[in-house]
Amino acid sequence: MKNLQCIIADDEPIARQILENYIQAIPNLEIIASCKNAFEVLEILQTKTVDILFLDINMPKLSGLSLLKTIQQKPSVIITTAYPEYAIEGFELSVTDYLLKPFSLERFLQAVNKVPQKEVSKPETTTITKQEIPLSIFVKSDKKIIKIDFDQINHIEAYGNYIKIFTDTMILTPQTLTEFLEKLPNHFIRIHKSCIINFNQLKLIDGNQVVLQNNTKLQIGKSYRKSVLDSI
């Protein structure tokens, strides 16, 4: 899995430092430039392949949104700003996410997880290709950022305002089951209001239970039984 090449664009030194710290905390992100204005960004984009642009809106001479309107081949763009009123215009320009300062590492991670992870950079071509499907996800657990490959996940269980992710170990992370399901590929299905399974790990269905490849037995919720059987 290649690292995602990142550019920071913000005229505030403290804001750039915060983003640099967040990026350095995530193993598959790599900073290739930290820019003070939009013109430095344009210069970088002419010579380097960029996967993610972390872009402030209120910059001198040329604003972040004005910059986006001039870029033909855009990387994934994550807006970082203190101004909520530009959100609609930002999403009209197809930004990946819109972060309002100050934002936490957890919220930053949620935005990064929306960027498709790639084995190789996308080639310039007029051929329509399928969107790259992410192979892994990063989650926050006990002040750590942990990378989890989707094919290593057996199942996920709700635990209050947290979820338990079961691989060969158990990882506890602060988010809801519904929020996490939205980030998962299609082969993850909900079998109960408090449980999601990796369908690729399904071994058999025994009455109202599923049995996974590691022999874990999990209850199928009554309202989910039909959707589980339809997935077979």
Rank of each mutant, 00 (worst) to 15 (best):
Ile220Trp: 11
Asp10Ile: 03
Tyr98Ser: 10
Asn161Asp: 15
Ile153Cys: 03
Glu43Phe: 00
Leu4Lys: 15
Ala15His: 07
Arg107Leu: 06
Val50Ser: 10
Thr169His: 11
Ser76Arg: 08
Thr47Ile: 05
Ile137His: 05
Ala87Tyr: 05
Ala87Pro: 05
Val210Ser: 08
Ala82Phe: 05
Asp168Thr: 14
Ile197Phe: 01
Ile57Pro: 04
Ile78Leu: 09
Phe166Ser: 07
Leu19Gln: 14
Gln131Val: 13
Asn28Ile: 01
Thr178Leu: 06
Phe108Arg: 08
Ala158Gln: 05
Asp97Phe: 07
Pro116Arg: 04
Ile14Asn: 08
Phe138Ser: 09
Thr80Phe: 03
Ala158Asn: 04
Ile133Pro: 02
Met1Val: 11
Ile148Val: 13
Pro123Ala: 08
Tyr159Asp: 14
Leu93Ile: 07
Cys6Val: 15
Ser66Asp: 15
Phe150Gly: 06
Asp142Ser: 08
Gln73His: 15
Thr80Tyr: 02
Arg107Phe: 02
Ala87Glu: 12
Leu4Ser: 15
Thr49Lys: 15
Leu100Asp: 09
Ile8Leu: 11
Ile79Trp: 06
Phe91Arg: 09
Ala111Asn: 07
Lys130Phe: 13
Ile18Glu: 13
Thr173Lys: 01
Lys140Arg: 06
Asn154Asp: 07
Gln46Thr: 02
Ile52Glu: 08
Arg225Gly: 01
Asn214Ala: 02
Leu105Gly: 01
Thr125Lys: 07
Asn214Lys: 11
Lys217Val: 12
Leu4Thr: 09
Lys147Tyr: 01
Thr127Gln: 14
Val77Arg: 11
Leu181Phe: 05
Thr167Leu: 09
Gln209Leu: 11
Asn28Asp: 15
His155Leu: 02
Ile191Leu: 03
Ile196Gly: 02
Gln72Phe: 03
Thr49Ala: 13
Ser66Arg: 06
Gln152Pro: 00
Gly90Met: 02
Lys226Trp: 01
Asn208Pro: 00
Leu53Lys: 06
Ala87Met: 13
Val95Asn: 04
Thr125Glu: 11
Thr70Ile: 10
Glu85Ser: 13
Tyr83Val: 12
Cys195Ile: 08
Phe108Val: 10
Ala15Gln: 06
Asp149Ile: 02
Ala111His: 04
Gln117Pro: 00
Tyr159Asn: 13
Asp142Leu: 05
Gln175Ser: 06
Asp230Ala: 09
Leu105Lys: 10
Asp206Ala: 11
Ile26Gly: 11
Ile71Asp: 12
Asn21Tyr: 11
Ile18Leu: 15
Met1Asn: 09
Val95Leu: 03
Gly64Val: 03
Pro13Glu: 11
Ile52Tyr: 04
Gln72Cys: 02
Lys140Trp: 00
Leu218Asp: 05
Ala87Leu: 04
Leu181Pro: 00
Ile137Met: 03
Glu132Arg: 08
Thr178Met: 01
Ser121Asp: 13
Ile232Gly: 00
Leu218Cys: 09
Ile78Val: 15
Lys61Pro: 00
Ile137Val: 13
Lys183Cys: 00
Thr125His: 08
Asp230Thr: 08
Thr169Gly: 03
Glu85Lys: 10
Ile191Glu: 03
Asn21Thr: 15
Ile52Trp: 04
Phe150Leu: 03
Leu135Trp: 00
Lys147Asp: 02
Tyr86His: 13
Glu43Lys: 11
Tyr162Phe: 13
